[in-house]
Simulated assay, not measured.
Amino acid sequence: MTDSEFDIRSLPFPEALRWLRENGEPADPRTDIDTGSLRRRFPRLANVETHDLTIETPYGAQPARAYRDNSADSSGRGLVWVHGGAFIGGYLDMPESNWVALELAARGIPVLAVDYSKCLGDVHYPVPSDDVIAAWEYGLAHSADLLGVGPEALYLGGASAGGALTSGAAARLRDGGGTVPAGLVLVYPVAHPDGAHPGSIPDPAAPHAQLSLNYAGSAEALYDPHVFAGLGSGEGFPRTIVVVCEHDGLRPSGEAFAALLDEGGVDVTLHLEPGADHAHINEPSDPTALPTIEVIAAWMRA
């Protein structure tokens, strides 16, 4: 099997974890997802300026990147954005981070895209959650300089595992007296330890349950509402949009979390993307990806 044919998702979870520990993030075989290629494919992205930086967290420095288009009609709101990757992978140059941020910035929504510690080896919750909270606090402190918006207009969001981390961070901020985001943007989020069956006891043999346990770090932590926000109360969350995909096996988790927020009196919007599957915004050529970007942008401006 050549490097271009290798797909780590084809490995059993223990083998995938071991491979990542030994080799790091596998190369993406796509040749058209770098920023230069994206600008050529989508001329609307031409005026987005980017700035790479690092954010100090309790566990060391994490890379981040600010996106801003001063020629765009400003929404008056900014976003701290966290990519997915099953808690074990993902990086700032993947489309779910880079392309999404470019597209939103071109629509007048400046973005601070951030990275976090991956759950490899002995790393588990709260390490990546602490990283996200550190990035959120950095965004609050530097929102005016980096994004041109005040901290009161800063939103937090993420996709998949990033949705778990950001919803969990929002719950921690709410319960710990921190600054809760002005809004929450969640795309196919994992808000429960078994995203396909919210409310059920996770099957330890199921692949998704293995990912959840690896993130949580213990069977007890699987039921902590700061680890998986869908297990707690919906009260006190900010205005939220939850995007779920028609063909996503984890769709029930997002739908259940939206219902939980609604029961808690939160202004929540549940958007179903027709024809889409999990990770669709990680593929710019997917015809269902851009509609999700448009829905998020319109919701943030509303």
Rank of each mutant, 00 (worst) to 15 (best):
V80N: 01
V48P: 01
L20F: 06
S117K: 10
S10K: 15
D115I: 00
R77P: 01
S117W: 03
P26I: 11
E15L: 15
A16G: 05
E56G: 06
L102I: 12
D34N: 14
D122G: 08
T50A: 07
A46W: 01
G60P: 04
R77E: 03
R68I: 05
G60Y: 11
D7Y: 08
G24Q: 03
E22D: 15
G108I: 07
D34Y: 07
D69A: 07
S75P: 12
D34T: 14
D52I: 00
A27Y: 01
D34V: 13
D122F: 01
L17M: 04
P43F: 06
R68V: 03
R30D: 06
D34W: 13
P26G: 10
G90Q: 11
T50K: 06
R39I: 15
E103T: 09
R65N: 14
V114Q: 10
I109Y: 11
S37C: 04
A46P: 00
P43Q: 08
R9L: 14
H51I: 09
Q62Y: 00
V111G: 06
A72M: 01
V100K: 04
A72Y: 00
W81A: 07
S71N: 07
E103N: 05
S71G: 08
D7T: 08
G76F: 04
I33M: 13
V114G: 14
R18F: 00
W81N: 04
R40A: 14
L38H: 13
L11P: 00
P58Q: 02
I33V: 15
D32T: 09
A106C: 11
L92F: 09
A64Y: 00
K118E: 03
S74R: 02
G76R: 07
D122W: 02
D115S: 15
A113D: 14
A106V: 08
A72F: 02
T35G: 13
L45N: 11
R30S: 10
G85D: 13
T57K: 00
P95C: 09
W81T: 12
N98P: 03
F87P: 00
G121M: 12
P12V: 09
A27V: 09
R41W: 12
S117I: 10
P26T: 08
R18D: 15
R107L: 13
N70D: 09
N70P: 01
A106M: 10
R9K: 12
V111H: 08
H83G: 10
S97T: 14
G78P: 00
R18V: 00
V127F: 02
A16R: 12
E15I: 13
L11C: 01
E56S: 12
A86H: 05
A101L: 03
R21N: 08
A106F: 13
P12S: 08
V114S: 13
A64C: 02
